[in-house]
């Protein structure tokens, strides 16, 4: 039995392999190799999550004009820079679960990330949004999403597991992944949001840190998650949503994954679908253009179809047509209770 270790800064309990305190983010001196990282990043049993390396041949056609992309990475027709595998990727682990993660128009780097797993009737959807002040955020967000997926994928596919505990563990592993991704800029460490949804036999679970969201777009549309943001705090104080979301600091998040977070534990909730509908996990690059669940439900209805991959692509395209001012991620699960 090893003695309990405490963070020298905040006195929280820390592990001997941790390089950072998961509570306050303070730098620690690990005395053991990290045992959890391998488990956290391992694919869940029947994972169909497409890893970035497998997408090497994906971008051979230009996303702007459909022309052929030359070996130099630019379209041979319109000259558009072909997105790197990190700039635009899609995943469709099952015919009812799919997502698209896209750089958008205005940002040079895609700091959003997405990781999906699904089988015939269970799914895990994770979306992360790296905070764009650090050059490590793109890497951190992807590592966080995949770490969370690894943990929850294992839990969801293991009968009798405690999913509420798995959500907490997933967020903790994601937080660790963000902390460990702060390589190139020690003075400017990366940070990320996370939004997670699971679909299992006993319904939908959701949770998050920051302002990425989980929506239910069914008979009675609603936003399931509560933002950790200044706007959400204003709304909590009674300011109307439209006013709060337009306020100058609206997008400042009050909790995040990464160094110095006031808390990285997700607020987990459960939900029983009230009919057929879409479960949407997205970053603010999408919901900035349609914040209320009603608007999003109308949008999804107007786009039509029941293919989640096509719908996710259309949602991303729609946000890009509105300016694509931020990275855009939309992950969907078609739910029929």
């Amino acid at each position: 039995m090893t003695p309990t270790l405490n963070c020298p800064e905040c006195q929280a309990v820390v592990q001997d392999y941790e390089a950072f305190c998961q509570s306050c983010g303070a730098r620690l001196s690990p005395t053991a190799a990290p045992p959890t990282q391998a488990a956290a990043s391992a694919d869940p049993p029947s994972s169909q999550t497409r890893r970035l390396v497998e997408r090497a041949s994906q971008a051979t056609l230009c996303l702007r004009c459909g022309g052929r992309v030359d070996a130099d990475g630019y379209c041979g027709q319109c000259g558009a820079k072909a997105p790197s595998e990190r700039d635009h990727f899609e995943a469709a682990p099952a015919d009812w679960v799919a997502g698209v993660c896209d750089r958008g128009q205005a940002h040079a780097v895609n700091e959003d990330a997405m990781a999906l797993w699904a089988d015939a009737d269970r799914a895990v959807l994770v979306v992360c949004d790296g905070v764009s002040s650090s050059s490590d955020s793109a890497r951190a967000a992807l590592a966080a999403a995949e770490a969370a997926l690894g943990t929850l994928g294992n839990a969801v596919s293991t009968p009798e597991s405690d999913l509420d505990a798995a959500f907490a563990a997933a967020a903790s592993h994601a937080n660790l992944a963000v902390l460990e991704a702060s390589g190139s800029q020690p003075d400017n460490p990366p940070a990320s949001t996370i939004a997670i949804a699971t679909v299992t036999a006993d319904g939908v679970r959701f949770g998050g840190v920051g302002d990425s969201r989980v929506y239910w777009l069914g008979p009675q549309p609603r936003c399931l998650t509560a933002d950790d943001s200044v706007a959400a705090e204003l709304i909590g104080q009674g300011v109307p949503r439209e006013v709060a979301e337009e306020s100058p600091q609206a997008h400042a998040i009050t909790r995040w994954l990464g160094q110095g977070t006031p808390g990285a534990d997700p607020r987990v909730g459960r939900f029983q679908p009230d009919g057929p509908g879409w479960l949407l996990v997205c970053s603010d690059g999408l919901w900035n253009y349609a914040s209320s669940a009603e608007e999003l439900a109308e949008l999804v209805a107007s786009l039509g179809g029941d293919d989640p991959a096509a719908l996710a692509r259309q949602l991303v395209k729609w946000a890009n047509q509105r300016g694509g001012h931020d990275n855009i991620t939309a992950a969907l699960a078609r739910v029929r209770p």
């Binding site: 558009a80 958008g104 128009q105 205005a106 040079a108 300016g323 694509g324």
Partner: peptide, 15 residues
């Protein structure tokens, strides 16, 4: 001379 694109876009102007 290129058609103008939106801010943030990168593209090839000539090979």
């Amino acid at each position: 001379r290129l058609p103008a694109r939106s801010l943030g876009q990168e593209q090839l102007a000539a090979r």
